[in-house]
Design a protein around this nucleic acid. Structure first.
Lengths: 243, 243
DNA sequence: AAGTGGTCTAGACCACGGC
DNA sequence: CCGTGGTCTAGACCACTTG
């Protein structure tokens, strides 16, 4: 098969199908080729085709009907996020149809408060790296993101950190750690004065508050993040297949 | 193997493993038996074991390490929801450690407004069924849930509807339809007077607002729901494995 | 009846981690 | 090195929908 070497075969199949959907080779609402046909055409086993299709179905991009066929979901155009990229603000902003950009506000080292020490399994007073960034959608500020990481985990010079990167890549590049899972708390709050200084707008309005704990494979907390999220500009919209 | 007949083999394996984790047969943080061992013990193929394990891993209940083993995630105790049951308020309330109950407020038939007609692909003025329910956590009101369903889809007497059921079951039992996928919008709002009459509390506080569109296999909208959600009582907390 | 997706099996090879 | 999970294959049977 004509697949460039990269990732797994199933992921490559997934990308091919995604491309065909985006390019309109498979039109919204229409029936896609059957699993056997795809299996033959791409020269992979039916099981591999199925794992790729399963991923698309889980994200709501296709609908599968036993005894009938697989259909492209026509309704997913106006959805900004899928379960799984809830924390990828750049993708979220793009999904809403805006041009994303990031302003690096500050990075500093300071001792952890007792609350922070507890959340990150540190001793009170251990050093913390605090990264503050502001996300823009078409030059309009939409999210203030703070991330707190134990200083002891840092493996590269503090100054070398590139504030434009995704947290995943920041961790990979400068901390030599990979994130295994996250726990996200979604809350609704009245915007605070500090946040309003960055996001602007009325003083008594409600904003979304995403508190995210990042954990490594060893089950230890790697970082803690808070996203103050202006949902008057950005829609947090999720698709998911029904269990 | 000693499996009662129900669902698929993979789901049965999934339930067995879940039970062993909950019962403490597999302790938090400890290593579980390998895939081959489980495969031998339960008398199913390794592939089947893997699909069950994949589900647990996706929900963050276990951590898988290539070349090492599978570990029970010790940190998932205090998580109230998983991706996939975000709309199951009863489960959410239980996950927060409260006893859930539902008060049926009202059910009525009325013509759809233009906005509602658009969302549900109806003609303006077509009849709508409006179901209003109030969810309690230990007798404390935590969520006001409105659901709007086209009257034309109803297949059973309006009066026979059991307001204690999950939306999934209401659809299955009284509308003879199954939900294929949902699109959820998460918003933050100041509590309205009407909602506050049910949920109580201060007048200027922020609450979560989950707008949910339900779609069928045919890609047509089946229903629209709005959950006004008091996040001062109930934590909306999600685990997910990192992609 | 034919074709679809849904499930399951048995076996293979690989990449990785710990010993 | 060995055992682990990660990936893939080929083939089978089933449940379902459609003509």
């Amino acid at each position: 098969m004509a697949l460039i070497q990269s990732k797994t075969v199933a992921n490559q199949v997934d990308e091919i199908l995604l491309e065909r959907i985006r390019d309109g080779n498979y039109l919204p609402g229409s029936r896609m080729p059957s699993e056997s046909e795809l299996s033959d055409e791409l020269g992979v086993s039916r099981a591999t085709v199925r794992t790729a299709l399963a991923k698309l179905a889980a994200n709501g991009l296709i609908l599968r009907k036993q005894g009938d066929g697989t259909y492209v979901n026509a309704r997913v155009r106006d959805v900004s996020a899928h379960f799984g990229n809830l924390w990828d603000l750049v993708q979220l902003i793009e999904g809403n149809g805006y041009k994303p950009s990031i302003r690096f506000i500050s990075i500093q080292k300071r001792p952890a408060t007792d609350k922070e020490a507890l959340a990150l399994a540190l001793e009170e007073g251990d050093d913390l790296i605090c990264i503050r960034r502001l996300f823009f959608a078409d030059h309009k500020p939409v999210s203030l993101a703070d991330n707190f990481i134990p200083f002891s985990l840092l493996r590269e010079p503090l100054e070398s950190i590139n504030g434009q990167l995704h947290i995943r890549d920041i961790f990979h590049n400068y901390f030599h750690q990979d994130i295994a899972f996250v726990i996200t708390d979604i809350r609704s709050t009245i915007i605070g004065e500090e946040t309003r200084a960055f996001l602007g707008g009325q003083s008594d309005r409600a904003i979304l508050n995403l508190s995210i704990s990042f954990y490594g494979k060893n089950n230890l907390p790697l970082a803690f993040g808070i996203n103050h999220f202006d949902d008057s500009v950005l829609r947090l919209s999720l698709v998911q297949a029904w269990a």
